[in-house]
Every structure is written in C-alpha cells, then in structure tokens.
C-alpha cells in the first residue's frame, strides 16, 4: 500500500479523491442545486447498487471462465452454453420440486457433468492447440444452443423467486429529507442483495481455497508450470478435470441466478459469453481478483450508462475494454 503510494503519488491522490467523492455521493444528503443538475439521489444510488449486483452475476460466470483459462489455457467459448444449460436445469428443478435452493445444486452438478464431458472428450484431445480449441468450442456452443432451442423452445423462462426474497428491503441510505424533517430511506430488491452476498461468499471461498489450501497450492503450481507439477507425481489430468467441472458448475449456478432476477431464453448464452470475455479481458486473463474487478466495472458501466447516457449504454462496456487494451493490454490485475 505504502509502496504503491510512494511509486505513484498522482495516481494515489486521484484514487483517494474518487473514493472520497463516491462516499460523499452515497452518504450525504444531496443539496437541491446538485440534484437539479445530476438527477435524484435515489436514481444514482440504485444505479450504483444495481451495477454492483449485476457485477456479482457477471463475476459468477466469468470466474469459472478465467479459472479454466488460467490453469489450462483453454479458451472455452461454450461457457455461455453452460450458463444457459444451468438456467434451464434450475427452472425445471424449481418447477418439479419447488425448492429454489435445491435448484442451485442441480444446476451446478448438471453443468459440471457437461463440463467434464467437454474436458474429457474435447479439450484433452487438443491440449495446447489454441486455435483448434477455439473453433471447436464455437461449434459446440452452436450445437448446444440449437439443441436447447429444440428442447425448451424460444420461450422466456423466469425462475420463480422464493417468497422470502420477493419485494424490497430498506437500506441504510437516506435519499431525501421530507419537509417534515423525516428522512426517506432507500428501498432495494432483497433478491439482488442476496445474489450479491452469494457471489461475494463464493468469490471469497474461491480465493481462500486457491491461496490457503493444498488443492489451491496444486492449482497455482499448475498455472505456473504444469510440466514440473506432473513430474512431481501430481495427477495433473485429474486436477484439470476437477477445475473444469468446478468452473462449468459455477456457470450453471450463475444460470439459476440469472434466470431468477432476469430471464433465460435463446441468445442469453452468447450474451453471457461476451460479458465474461469482456470481464476477463478488462480484469486480466486467469486472475480471480481481476475477474471481480472487471465484473464490477462492467456492471457499473452498464447500469450508470443506462440511466445517464441510455443511447450509449451499449457502447460503454466496449469502450472500457478498448481503453484497457490500449493502456494495459494484459488486463488490470494480470501478473
């Protein structure tokens, strides 16, 4: 921290100012003149929270993508299909059993199994051949998309939110002061908060496992030098298989999340593939903290953009990607 400040005094000052302004925007009651120019505080706060929660969803999808890439250098362009597949599985489970939480388990297992099949039958046969892997996975994603369209049709599936997550919650942020002096607190959908909390927990757990456990040690060693690792007697192919299954399972779980607070339908697979590509390019290929930062940035850009510059909201995320590629092509948090 201190070294960073010593090395980049101007950047540090800039970051501190940004953080201070942000905290003021969130916690202070906005003066009327400011509201007239900038719009209502409620809108701003909502956009920020939405950006963060949407970032949580992006993180769930992208972290699996980046984990697989980091370890195996596999660019799995069928990752979006795993998301969509998990979403459909989740919907069917909720429809049959009525249990929302159980649907996460089913979606995780189903997508992980599909991932294992992919790894075993496809990636293992073309290890180290980037172009072939890319082309083959594009082909697989098209086949899977058509199969799912055939089975589930083009309808929009929206997974039933459990009753205890429906409706808004009161947040500890004052958005306005009534003329009577009473403070108006902000309300926010509970389900989005739950999703965000879940993605933070998963993110932290992943970080802990990677950095504090023996399995994590093996995986990190594999990222650095997999030949050396396998020569030390570690069953590297099994590690690959497990990591691939885990990454695919995360995408499947994200499908349930996405189906709950958005909806799932044909086309969502490519949308989330694109989102995770942008996220890992911004954050840095193969880095979990990078995926978190990238997801946060893209989520915020999308949501703030949709309020303050709706016409250009679509371009904004790609603009961020272009800027990052221009000034730090390896990604913000890449080693």
């Amino acid at each position: 921290m201190r070294r960073f400040i010593e090395r980049h005094p101007l950047w540090s000052l800039f970051i501190i100012v940004v953080i201070f302004v942000f905290l003021w925007l969130v916690f202070a009651t906005w003066p009327p003149g400011f509201e007239a120019i900038f719009g209502k505080k409620k809108v701003f706060l909502n956009a920020v929270l939405n950006g963060i929660t949407l970032g949580g969803l992006y993180f769930l999808v992208a972290s699996g993508f980046t984990l697989i890439f980091g370890l195996m250098r596999n660019v799995n362009l069928a990752h979006g299909s795993l998301y969509l597949f998990g979403g459909y599985m989740g919907f069917k489970t909720v429809a049959w059993t009525g249990s929302w939480l159980f649907s996460f388990v089913v979606a995780f297992v189903a997508a992980a199994l599909l991932g294992i099949i992919l790894q075993y039958l496809v990636f293992r046969r073309m290890e180290g051949q980037d172009l072939r892997q890319t082309l083959v996975t594009i082909g697989i994603s098209i086949v899977l998309a058509d199969l799912m369209l055939w089975i589930f049709g083009g309808d929009f599936y929206q997974i039933q939110t459990p009753d205890w997550l429906v409706g808004p919650a009161q947040m500890p942020f004052v958005t306005a002061i009534k003329s009577s002096g009473e403070a108006v607190y902000m309300t926010y959908p509970i389900v989005r908060l739950a999703i965000f909390a879940a993605s933070v927990v998963i993110g932290l757990a992943m970080w802990l496992v990677l950095n504090r456990s023996k399995i994590g040690m093996i995986i990190r060693a594999g990222v650095d030098d997999k030949d050396m690792l396998s020569s030390m007697g570690v069953p590297i192919q099994l590690v690959f298989l497990l990591v691939f299954a885990f990454g695919a399972g995360l995408a499947g779980m994200a499908g349930v999340v996405g189906g709950t607070f958005q909806s799932i339908s044909p086309g969502e697979d490519t949308r989330f593939l694109l989102a995770s590509l942008v996220v890992v390019i911004v954050g840095g290929m193969g880095s979990i903290p990078g995926a978190a930062l990238g997801a946060l940035l893209i989520g915020l850009a999308e949501q703030l953009g949709s309020v303050y510059a709706p016409t250009y909201a679509v371009v904004l995320t790609f603009l961020i990607m272009v800027v990052v590629l221009a000034i730090r092509p390896q990604g913000l948090l890449a080693r």
Partner: peptide, 17 residues
C-alpha cells in the same frame, strides 16, 4: 420519456429512475 436499448436485460436502474 425514457428510452432503453432493444435487448436490455437489467432494468434495475431504469425502474429506479
């Protein structure tokens, strides 16, 4: 009059506005 791009999936902020 609020206009959102065709294909918008997350309306959280639009709803708040």
């Amino acid at each position: 009059r609020q206009w959102v791009p065709l294909g918008t999936k997350d309306f959280g902020s639009v709803i708040a506005a």
